[in-house]
Computed example of a mutant assay.
Amino acid sequence: MIFICDKTKLQDAIAIAQKAITGKSTMPILEGLYIEANKNTLTLIGSDKDVSIETKLEADVLKEGKIVVDAKIFGEIIRKLPNSEVKIETLENNSIQISCEKSVFNLVHMNSEEFPGLPQINENIIFGIPQNLLRNMIKGTSFAVAQDETRPILQGILFEVENSKLNLVALDGYRLALKSELIDTNNTINAVIPGKTLNEVAKILEDNECVVSITFTTNHILFNLGNTKVISRLLEGEFIKYNALLPQDYKLLVTVDKQAIQNGIERASLMAKDGNSNLIKFDINDDAIVITSNSQLGKVREEVSANMQGEGMQIAFNSKYLLDVLKNMEDGEVEMELTSSISPCIIKNKNAENSKYLVLPVRLVK
């Protein structure tokens, strides 16, 4: 195998494929990056069995072939080379030579035959969605994915398509995040994708309206971004019936400036770092939210103007959960729907219907 290509383009392709290499696999071959040179195209694949990323770039292929190289060291070598053309060729003793200007590296490679093949997916495109839209939906839900491994299904994000609408849903037992967008499809889909996969997909997606094509099989999802494909296994099991968790009624509706309440909570949370509860208290009355926090560090009082419809209320929250929600909301004003000090709080954008968040309060010991 012999090929010549631009260093920067090769570095970018390595960075994309490497996102699938976790270093946690028991198979040494999966520490490697699969490289195939064929018809003036380089194909790079990284995989950890659960997620595989394939990306292609142009190259001047003088002799076709395929190898697997240690992803970490190969990536470091290419990154530190001068910004020039790189020539890579295989030598007889299971090694490759990497040349760029006056730099020459020899690196041992592995047998490409041992690298597991990608799952075969028939790409009869199920639907497409603009990259920036999907990226925002992932960003707006992935923070609520469960981190503990006791309920594996909650380590994923529900991908639900019905009535030409895509819903992404994540929940971890303390909060729930739901993002919805209308899409052009008549299909009905219900699948759970590992949260870590979608986070890597979000890093590859660009902030433009180019369409990413999405194909589902029984066990896998494929994201096709043109030169790059991401294939992930789906999580097994039933996702929680999230609609049943969302209260339909409320007794108090509070409309508040998003940035004002976010700033108030951030300042109040400085005193709430005692223990892990990050406890802050809301006293909602007289068209204002008084935010307080007491701990061994001291105490704080913040007041934020708000519009109230309903009876006043006292309620406490983990400040981290509220801030995670507010940081992902796009509207200038947000609405909080409250029922009691022990009932879930629903937070929505005032002027946009595409997001809904649920945060459980912290019960106060009286």
Results as ranks from 00 to 15, higher is better:
residue 18 Q to S: 15
residue 110 M to N: 10
residue 89 E to T: 02
residue 255 T to D: 10
residue 357 Y to N: 13
residue 137 M to K: 06
residue 33 L to P: 08
residue 2 I to R: 15
residue 90 T to F: 02
residue 301 R to V: 10
residue 119 P to N: 07
residue 207 D to W: 05
residue 244 A to D: 15
residue 152 P to T: 01
residue 40 N to M: 07
residue 326 L to V: 11
residue 342 I to S: 15
residue 124 N to E: 15
residue 171 L to C: 10
residue 201 V to M: 07
residue 311 E to N: 14
residue 178 L to S: 02
residue 53 I to Q: 08
residue 346 I to F: 11
residue 44 L to M: 10
residue 124 N to G: 06
residue 268 A to G: 15
residue 326 L to Y: 09
residue 344 P to F: 08
residue 232 S to F: 01
residue 202 A to L: 05
residue 33 L to D: 02
residue 238 E to H: 04
residue 312 G to F: 08
residue 223 F to S: 01
residue 201 V to C: 11
residue 40 N to I: 02
residue 14 I to M: 09
residue 94 N to S: 13
residue 269 S to G: 13
residue 232 S to N: 00
residue 278 N to T: 09
residue 288 A to V: 04
residue 43 T to M: 11
residue 302 E to V: 04
residue 233 R to N: 10
residue 198 L to S: 08
residue 143 F to C: 05
residue 191 A to T: 01
residue 286 D to Q: 14
residue 298 G to R: 05
residue 194 P to R: 02
residue 2 I to Q: 15
residue 68 V to D: 03
residue 256 V to F: 08
residue 77 I to A: 07
residue 116 P to F: 06
residue 303 E to W: 11
residue 103 S to M: 03
residue 11 Q to R: 12
residue 29 I to W: 00
residue 83 N to W: 00
residue 43 T to E: 10
residue 333 E to K: 15
residue 4 I to Q: 15
residue 66 K to M: 08
residue 314 Q to W: 08
residue 208 N to I: 10
residue 121 I to P: 06
residue 310 G to D: 12
residue 11 Q to C: 13
residue 131 Q to N: 07
residue 97 Q to G: 07
residue 149 E to W: 02
residue 209 E to A: 08
residue 298 G to C: 05
residue 120 Q to T: 08
residue 51 V to K: 09
residue 302 E to R: 02
residue 267 R to I: 14
residue 228 T to W: 09
residue 126 I to K: 11
residue 156 G to Q: 05
residue 1 M to T: 08
residue 120 Q to S: 12
residue 82 P to R: 02
residue 30 L to A: 03
residue 13 A to S: 15
residue 184 D to F: 14
residue 315 I to M: 13
residue 238 E to G: 00
residue 125 I to S: 06
residue 202 A to R: 11
residue 222 L to K: 11
residue 320 K to I: 14
residue 47 S to R: 03
residue 43 T to P: 08
residue 45 I to K: 05
residue 278 N to M: 09
residue 38 N to T: 03
residue 264 G to E: 06
residue 165 K to Y: 01
residue 158 L to E: 01
residue 358 L to S: 03
residue 27 M to A: 11
residue 263 N to W: 04
residue 94 N to P: 03
residue 96 I to N: 07
residue 295 S to L: 08
residue 213 S to M: 07
residue 29 I to G: 11
residue 197 T to S: 15
residue 199 N to V: 11
residue 166 L to Q: 02
residue 313 M to E: 13
residue 356 K to D: 03
residue 287 D to M: 09
residue 117 G to H: 03
residue 188 T to H: 07
residue 204 I to C: 09
residue 199 N to P: 05
residue 75 G to K: 00
